[in-house]
Design a protein around this nucleic acid. Structure first.
Lengths: 202, 202
DNA sequence: TCAATTCTTGACTGATTCGTCCATAACGCT
DNA sequence: AGCGTTATGGACGAATCAGTCAAGAATTGA
């Protein structure tokens, strides 16, 4: 089933574009304050199409949230993948990139993972579960890179890479949170620099 | 004006109790998803009294948010105030206390400062401003304690205490964020331990 | 007791908002 | 071209929610 070619009216809209528009609204206004009518208007779709294609507000948000989490996990893995020789440089670049992009986010909308989790995790187990998976994946990607740093002699080997990764992840999420609270670019950059400076060297 | 003794019907409710009930709802459900009817029902007040006493939903939230921010800043200052000789122990205790209380928060409601900022800072300048003030105060309290640690020889003096404080604050806010995302108590405790372990010693 | 003032209650209003429904359009297949 | 199927668009329904209002209650001072 599902493998047959549908012999019916095809969709006029691009599902990805609708998801992007929805993400934009959810990201900017939060879940509760976003209206389905807005998303419909922003995409030009009628509400019938929207509901027909995605089911409802909650399911649409879950789709958006899933995609967002997946994309930041992928981007982080991409940032951190490579040879042991460059592992420390990648870590440094990644931490600075998070600080820079947070500082550049003048609207202080922050990260949708953080925002969606803050708003919904307590009452929406799907969101909570997805956030947990994403955070675990981020920590794992960091741990892999930190282990590579240790193999190459850039970080002291007498520390559990998983624990250092958890610390770095906390710093990254903290940069996020402080950025949303209005910290200056200087402060965020300082945090990135200091975090890297205090990581134990061999 | 206002100094005369009111010769009229006195309030039957306690303003602090209403603020607490409102905080509970806002904290648990977020701003947008909280209904004034709920707060009225929870406190037994009629909506007229609620609006008469607090103005409206937004103003009520601002009152709640202000009080909350003030209380966590005060609590942090309290945690960190004391002699230089105990400064490092206070810092350690504070970081561990944040990790422990975050882990103990089974509902993952997290911190209202973080939650309110995430939901509203982008569109509500009052919230954004208040969050900024609170975060600055937290950093300042940490910086004072770290400077005391340096004076007493528990932390290397060749680091700007403000920058170390910013890093520690990021770790604390990160612990918060990870807790909301479902990190285990072990993870949060590890972060606290590791953060303290990597702080530069003299 | 009466007047002035403020508080209380909850019904009511007006505006939103999620979701549904249905007539109609567009497509593939025969 | 005709049929079956799925997409479209927007009107509609029902529920929800912020905020208002008016009639009455409680209190103090005179």
């Amino acid at each position: 089933m599902g493998m047959v070619v549908p012999m019916a009216r095809p969709r006029k809209f691009d599902e990805q574009q609708v998801l992007e528009a929805a993400r934009e609204r959810f990201w900017s206004n939060g879940y509760a304050a976003t209206r389905m009518d807005d998303i419909a208007a922003a995409t030009g779709l009628g509400k019938g199409s929207l509901y027909g294609a995605f089911g409802g507000k909650q399911e649409l948000f879950h789709r958006v949230f899933d995609e967002y989490c997946g994309s930041i996990v992928d981007a982080t893995r991409q940032d951190l993948r490579g040879d042991d020789a460059d592992a420390y440089e990648r870590l440094s670049a990644h931490i600075h990139a998070v600080a820079a992009s947070t500082a550049a986010d003048a609207a202080h909308r922050g990260c949708l993972l953080a925002k969606g989790t803050a708003e919904l995790a307590e009452h929406d187990t799907v969101v909570a579960q997805r956030a947990r998976v994403a955070v675990d994946a981020l920590q794992s990607a960091l741990a892999d890179d930190i282990a590579a740093c240790q193999r190459h002699g850039d970080i002291a080997p007498d520390h559990d890479p998983a624990k250092l990764a958890a610390l770095v992840l906390a710093v990254l999420r903290g940069i996020e949170a402080l950025g949303k609270a209005g910290a200056t670019e200087q402060t965020l950059t300082d945090i990135a620099d200091t975090a890297l400076a205090v990581l134990p060297r061999p």
